[in-house]
Design a protein around this nucleic acid. Sequence first.
DNA 1: CCAAACGTCTGT
DNA 2: ACAGACGTTTGG
Length: 731
Amino acid sequence: MAASTATTPAATTSSSTATAVKLPSNRTSSGARRRRTRCRKCEACVRTECGECHFCKDMKKFGGPGRMKQSCIMRQCIAPVLPHTAVCVVCGEAGKEDTLDDEDEKFNAMLMECSICNEIVHPNCLKVKDAAGVVNDELPNCWECPKCNYAGKTGKQKRGPGFKYASNLPGSLLREQKAGRDGREEGDQTSTGASSIKRKSEREETPRLKSEDLPSRLPPLLSPSGLPRPRSEVPNFLRKKRKLFDDDDEEEEASAKKKPKKSWRPEEALIPKLSHMKTEEEEDNSDEEEESDASQCSSPRAGPSSEGSETQEKAPRARAKRHRRKPPNRQLSTELSKQLNMEIRRTEHSLANENQQPLKSEPEDSENEEPKRGGEGGGERPHLRAREMNGTSWELRHFYPPQITPLGLNRSSPTVRPIPARSPPKCVQMERHVIRPPPICPPPDRLPLADGRNHIAPREAWLAIFSHLSHRELCVCMRVCRTWNRWCCDKRLWTHINLKRCKSITPLMLSGIIRRQPITLDLSWTNISKKQLSWLINRLQGLRVLLLSGCSWVAVSALCTSSCPLLRTLDLQWVEGLKDPQMRDLLSLPTDNRPGQMDTRSKLRNVTDLRLAGLDITDSSLRLIIKNMPLLSHLDLSYCNHINDQSVNLLTAAGTTTRDSLTDVNLSVCNRVTDQSLSYFKRCGSICHIDLRFCKQVSRQACERFIAEMSVIVPFQLQEDKLLQKLHSTP
DNA sequence: CCAAACGTCTGT
DNA sequence: ACAGACGTTTGG
């Protein structure tokens, strides 16, 4: 019915209707807000409809009723812009940043929409030039205008643009943040007096300590007992099914929370370990550091998390304009960011080539740049730079023990109002959440010193030093100053993110992960949900190693619909509920309709290291593996009770790619494997390591016989009982 | 004028 | 709090 709705002329008239009431004429006046439109440039905008999400299904074109009238979830613009028709309330003109070169001038000439009063103005047109405006990095041309900021408005008016996006989406991750910010805002705002522009930082989370490394391939079984720990280790949540991620968190917290939460700080609430993380710290940090260069955007659009924070923080600096960084730095930053991006791109590219998969990561830039008015986009950046601190908190939170972190930060500033209790973060449907690509942050190349000069050591030198630090230590460093904060957030320092056994994976953590674009991600034994994992995978296109042991199949099934083209190592050990049927789904050809993913090859075709220990899979799964993973070299089938000699026969049969690609096979504790398997392994041209420990039906004699026979070609040794190791690994 | 879809309101 | 519904706004 209403489906097409749209335009009925009547609509206008009908404005009187309850709903309609809102924005009719006053739009620009305070109170009425301007609708934003898609930037048309970001990754999301460029995509085609997935045809599978709720909204797509509602569309008439996909056979739906067309009542919801929402854009495809995969196409939710990352950086919605002001409509072309937007003009300054003061002078009535559009953005003019295009005509200027100087960053600061651009900023002052671009249209900025206040997220509180909704007014759209040219900063230049404001009389109160000194007052501080708080730029919202997350949304182009969005800030908390000096007037509101100065007035200390915090109120709920905030609904501005920043909020709307995502926040209005029902399940949006943002909410939490939002909540967060509100809470903070208040506090901060009051404090705001400061003069500088602040942006809201985002909160992200980091992996908690790396505490344990995963024994990815654990030395086969320490506990021959059979299948040991598995399930038990699995956190309860694993088993539950949550609808959305939230649940997880919620569940945990739930018990606790249900009522008003203490503070709204999600992290704390949620994760014991991480607790500390967030918010305030970030803010604090930001403030502390603040000043210096400020340029950067480290967080601009990190996932979900970011948004929340940004707005809130307005507090600090006011003069946005000026604040924006010093020109020099800025340029530097720009340059660096370009280089960085290129670097990243190059790397990813090379990797991607193999699969021809485009990676996402750069979108940010594009996002900022608006098609239409470049100015707007450009304008933003400046602010962005200003803000950077976001990262900080993230790390802190995670890594620091609660006690430490907090410092005064958290609460110290409690400004005016008590923090509203917010609900814990939930991630709810990520689908609706606005997706923000990893931030590109061009960090300053030199450390600004108090005397105005720069430290002699270049960033790279510092990074070399930072590279020797643990993540925890990096977190500490991130609190030193803004510049260090930025530097310590360098992607290169976070190639491995370990969240193993982290019970609750929160939205903040997710965005923190995305921001850092790790190459290796360990989510083993976590209660990550399918949506969360799907969300991550779709945004970690450069991910090479994904460890999901001990997770539930429900979650792992995210791999069925999301593609991770560069994935080399996939650890699915002890995944609950992963059997042949599931393996079939996992290895079946892509079902992803999204553009760019139409590849007909297996999504896991580039996997070289597959860990399936403890799964009840049979030869039917092996056949699929053999067929779809031509590059497979390391295969862990330990504790797989259904694996037998025939399985090995299949793996080493003539005509299979595995016959030549396999180098390491772990069949320890596979009680159905016998001496016969060893003869099959002789067919493997590249085999270097065969683990048959604890295989009751495999004899030492057979192993010795294997060695004797194989040694004619390649020398093998019995490293341990029933553990065959090639003496000299091939080059 | 129309398709798209933003942002708010409503019902549960 | 959420899922839907839908008037209204945008861009072309």
